[in-house]
């Protein structure tokens, strides 16, 4: 699958680097990301500070690393939450169909009518700010889209021969759903998850950029972007390095998603 699949190769490479930075950022950064130093304010990138320093003399690279960790973690949790609930709802409705399916899907349609960022905004306004509320809000906001994909897959597989024969052999519904069908839908679900991850990154960045996402001392890439924007003239490296990191993070995963879809064909 990897061979000859450019998208997958480049995607994996970028994602790999970013992931290493994210994991590393959890345990170690070159400087304390929140340590202020009035002697080193607004320093341009150099060997000492490869991404320069910000208005408080903090090391931008350390902050970027911390920021990737936070953004990454929030997005992962969001996807995990959205997918877990989405798969269960999608599987049940897709497999059993009927009136419950009709009602749930109608509600689902209605919910997907709200763009997910708006939905997250509403949830945040109900729950309050902070890291965990962002995860919860985005997770809930992403459930319908996963549920929809999973549902259509299950509805398709329900009528296939292998499911029919499993049913004849007396397998329980639960077993058919999660042991027989689910693994067969991975080719569709996996790219959806990867794309979902990207949407989560974008949504988290937007929320934090708007100032209603994570709070200090937490650092996320979106939060940093809103911070750094004020200093664009005096410290352009701050905004550029932060922005470029977000781009890289999203680019890596979108190439990965692309590659996975191509590998399926």
């Amino acid at each position: 699958m990897l061979k000859g699949n450019r998208y997958l190769q480049i995607g994996l490479a970028i994602t790999g680097v970013v992931t290493v930075l994210a994991v590393l950022g959890l345990f170690w950064t070159p400087y304390d990301p929140s340590a202020m130093n009035s002697a080193e304010m607004y320093m341009a990138p150099s060997l000492r500070h490869i991404f320069g320093t910000d208005n408080f003399g903090r090391d931008v690279f350390s902050r970027v690393m911390k920021g990737i960790s936070t953004t990454y973690l929030i997005s992962l949790c969001t996807v995990a939450m959205g997918a877990a609930v989405g798969v269960i709802v999608g599987a049940l409705t897709g497999y059993f169909g009927g009136i419950v399916d009709d009602i749930l899907m109608r509600v689902n349609d209605a919910v997907t009518a709200f763009p997910s960022i708006l939905l997250a905004l509403v949830f945040i306004s109900l729950l309050g700010f902070g890291k965990y509320n962002v995860i919860l809000a985005l997770g809930v906001a992403f459930v319908p889209s996963y549920a929809r994909v999973v549902r259509s897959e299950f509805a398709r597989h329900r009528e296939m021969n292998y499911v029919k024969s499993a049913r004849l052999m007396g397998a329980t519904d639960r077993r058919i759903m999660f042991v027989h069908i689910l693994p067969n839908t991975r080719a569709v679900i996996l790219p959806t998850l990867v794309i979902g991850f990207n949407n989560a990154v974008l949504a988290e960045a937007s929320l934090s950029y708007l100032g209603i996402g994570v709070r200090s001392p937490d650092v996320s890439l979106g939060y940093m972007l809103s911070e750094s924007q004020s200093y664009m003239a005096t410290a352009p490296w701050y905004v550029l390095c932060t922005g470029a990191t977000i781009v890289l993070l999203i680019l890596g995963f979108s190439l990965l998603g692309e590659g996975l879809q191509q590998g399926r064909r």
């Binding site: 202020m36 408080f56 200090s216 001392p217």
Partner: peptide, 10 residues
């Protein structure tokens, strides 16, 4: 100021 104060209190 809040950012600096927070750091000092930490």
């Amino acid at each position: 100021t809040a950012e600096v104060v927070a750091q000092q209190l930490r």
